[in-house]
Amino acid sequence: MKVTVDHDLCEGNMKCQAAAPEVFEVRDDDLAYVLVDEVPDELRTNVENAVRLCPRQAVRWQKEQK
């Protein structure tokens, strides 16, 4: 599964980085960046938490393309 951060919404609240530092990094521009292409299975729960905890609901699972 892929995860995305909507930069129109993101305001550098750091919740995603705290939940899954291997996957998210908040940089000097106060925006969070996704560090991996595919989220490894063992990090899924952490990313799930990032999705749930982002105050701006900017972190989302990417819908599978059919």
Binding site: D8, L9, E11, G12, N13, M14, D30
Partner: peptide
């Protein structure tokens, strides 16, 4: 809303 908020939000981030 998104565009309006982006006019000011950099002054309100945890870092700022």
């Amino acid at each position: 809303h998104v565009r309006l908020r982006r006019l000011v939000n950099k002054g309100f981030t945890p870092r700022a």
